[in-house]
Amino acid sequence: MQDASKFRRTGGSAVESGSSPETDPDRPVVFVLDDDPDVREALSSLLSSAGLRVLTFGSAAEFLKAKAPRCPACLVLDLQLPDINGLDLQQKLAEVNGPPVVFISGHGDIPSSVRAMKAGAIEFLPKPFSDEELLSAISNAIAKDRETTQQRSELARIQKSYALLSAREREVLPLIAAGLKNKDSAAMLGIAEITLQVHRAQIMRKMAAQSVTDLVRMASKLGIV
């Protein structure tokens, strides 16, 4: 099994070892992983003409050594590769927040397509497929990656703010999220209501919450009930 640990996204960006091309955070990139050079060349030409940056690879090992641009991305992945099964690579990439996958295959079958989709693939396209089908799938994958990146970035920001809370403030936050009144929360913690109000104000400030509703939303994202 190839090691996918180098292809790990931290803070919504891909981080790898190795060299990389110039990056533009606003311009998506499509990784094409197929062992057929003719397929790689054809797909590269098509995607480049659509305004997408394209990085092509002939093996999973080559792909995993490359350095990914810090921008929205997706992986067009052949099911059958010389060094690893595409489904196994998909699983490994999912464990390290890899890019959304669009499968292409000339040897696909129903069980493989079902497994791929259940594992989160955006699309499973049997060869031959139309340009429109591929471009549509890639567009959906990139849109999903943008959304996922935004969610990861927001969660990272919330976690950073949460780390600023004191131990007592972390006890108060779930009570606020539960909708308890200050008087009831103070009674549960055995502190004065005025002290509870001070903690509440500090929580709002440290979490950069614009309202109690905003704070409750953040608590929900942190899994605090």
Rank of each mutant, 00 (worst) to 15 (best):
K181M: 10
A177E: 11
G51I: 04
A186G: 02
A137M: 00
S59R: 03
S166D: 10
P28T: 01
G98Y: 12
D38G: 15
L89C: 07
A14W: 11
I138W: 00
L125N: 13
A192R: 12
D131R: 14
S20G: 09
P111R: 12
R8I: 09
Q80A: 07
D88A: 09
Q151D: 02
I84W: 09
E22Q: 12
E147T: 03
Q150H: 13
G51V: 00
R170A: 08
G120N: 06
A14F: 15
D38V: 15
Q150T: 08
D26F: 09
P25A: 01
A94R: 14
R205K: 12
S105Y: 13
L173V: 13
S220V: 06
R40D: 01
M117Y: 02
R170L: 08
D38N: 15
G179T: 01
D131E: 14
V96K: 04
G179Y: 10
L87F: 14
A192N: 05
I158D: 02
L77T: 06
G12F: 15
E132I: 10
S153Y: 08
E169Y: 07
R200H: 06
G18R: 04
G86D: 05
F57D: 06
L155N: 09
D131T: 14
P25M: 02
L55D: 08
D36E: 14
S20M: 06
F103I: 00
M204I: 08
P69F: 05
I191E: 01
E95L: 13
R205C: 01
E132D: 15
R152V: 11
F103P: 01
A42C: 06
I110R: 11
L135T: 01
D26I: 03
I158A: 06
D83P: 04
R200Q: 10
S19D: 07
R168W: 12
V54C: 13
L222V: 10
Q90P: 08
D36Y: 02
T10W: 08
K6E: 06
R53Q: 06
R217N: 13
G108I: 00
P37E: 14
V30G: 01
A73R: 05
R115M: 09
T23W: 07
I191M: 08
D26Y: 05
A192E: 07
D109K: 15
L215T: 03
K67C: 04
M117D: 01
S48L: 09
I191R: 11
Q80D: 13
P37N: 13
H199C: 01
E171A: 09
T149N: 08
A177G: 12
P28M: 02
G108P: 00
D184K: 15
L46I: 11
L33Y: 04
Q159T: 04
E62L: 04
A94K: 10
K127A: 02
V29E: 00
A208H: 12
I142D: 04
S161K: 08
P37D: 15
S136M: 13
P28K: 00
R168L: 14
A50W: 11
S166Q: 10
